[in-house]
Design a protein around this nucleic acid. Sequence first.
DNA 1: CGGTTCATTGATTCGCGTCAATGCAGGTGG
DNA 2: CCACCTGCATTGACGCGAATCAATGAACCG
Lengths: 244, 244
Amino acid sequence: MGIVTSAMGVPVPMAIESHCDECAIREASICEVLDAAQLARLRGISTVVTYAPNAPLFEEGSEAQHVSNVIEGTVTLYKLLPDGRRQILGFLYPGDFVGLALDPTYGCSAEATTVVRMCRFPRERLEKMFKDLPALEHRLLEIAGNEIKAAQEQMLLLGRKTARERLASFLLVLSRRAAARGRPASPVDLPMRRSDIGDYLGLTIETVSRTFTQFKKAGLIGLPNQSQVTLLQREILETIAEGN
Amino acid sequence: MGIVTSAMGVPVPMAIESHCDECAIREASICEVLDAAQLARLRGISTVVTYAPNAPLFEEGSEAQHVSNVIEGTVTLYKLLPDGRRQILGFLYPGDFVGLALDPTYGCSAEATTVVRMCRFPRERLEKMFKDLPALEHRLLEIAGNEIKAAQEQMLLLGRKTARERLASFLLVLSRRAAARGRPASPVDLPMRRSDIGDYLGLTIETVSRTFTQFKKAGLIGLPNQSQVTLLQREILETIAEGN
DNA sequence: CGGTTCATTGATTCGCGTCAATGCAGGTGG
DNA sequence: CCACCTGCATTGACGCGAATCAATGAACCG
């Protein structure tokens, strides 16, 4: 493996690879809309980089030099208040897109939750490529639309749902997401810590923990270990998540 | 003026006009990136519609037939939980864009807050036009990026800020928005009701009201009437909004 | 084995929600 | 012109859900 942090504390990728022939997520990423020739051009400007867990990818307000696709692992996007309060905006999984193509500065910070491999494009070069590959821009607009919808759902959650409703919603989203990727819908993986879940749902660690045990005692979920949840009563969880 | 609601309760536009030569918001809307010839094509598929206050524009989950630009008035976007809890996702002002171009169903509901005039495009026809006018799609991607950033800021507010911080943030955003449109930054207009502010900030009417009077007593704002706020101590409000 | 990190659980506090009353402006009809 | 409504905003009293503070457990690791 490689360097994770330079002598000056500046984060740098752990490792840099190069190709995308056997890319595991190609059909889920921005490349899916391109034919072979176009893909070759895109590959020309892409680099695969690897980050260690907890490595910062970029910080809010800094110049957005790259735009990336997650290939492996999960990435946490968040914003901070000056006193340290944190709001996690999302957890990105393989296939997810990082960095708005057209904005020259990042609106939030990002760090690797697990070991992360990403396919990275220099933002400016990608942008120039839009002129020749309108399909690429179309695809990004599609992705942006999905993100907006997800953000709106999250605003409903943060503004109006109770702790129980938030956690139930969270578990179901993870479960559906896993199913959509061909993974089992039920033992749901939680690659993040309780504090991350809390910061994502606008709750404290303690409330997250208490709500987990409450669900467990009610027979709605099983907690085989800290990072897995079995959904035992999916329908009841769904009712809870919708606020009934 | 025209019909506001048909006999069957189906909402229909109050009035329909036609041109966009003296459009007040052209440079702020999606049209700004087009030259005269392109604009003529776009105009060909556009209609100006007017809605009365409280008229519903569309409902979550329904088919997205149009995509529009607000010309005049303000629009409220929101989501509901089955028991009636409401989260307002945003207030749209002249120049703002309604409806993600690429999604065939609406992810939220919308209604007119005031009298509203909008420039409306049939979604499918607009989409077809993308092929010839890539600049249009580029502009939409830009708009989507701004919306994502705003949504992220709002998630921070809803998940982590206190009532005071939320209201201060809200007033400042409105003030900056007004200034950016060449209006005075200080007596801020509140075209929406207290309950709308509450549903936008994830608070109750009462908390919004109490926080207003708290700010007023502290000399931070003035409340000449129910729908206007004078920002007397902008810097202090800014400190509060950032969480200090 | 002690140290570190994270999760759980309990006791208590507190900010905001809930419930209820009052105020206030605009509109309508007598 | 006034009495009365209606819709909103304000204010107060009280309660609750989640935060805070604090202790204990559990897993992992050098």
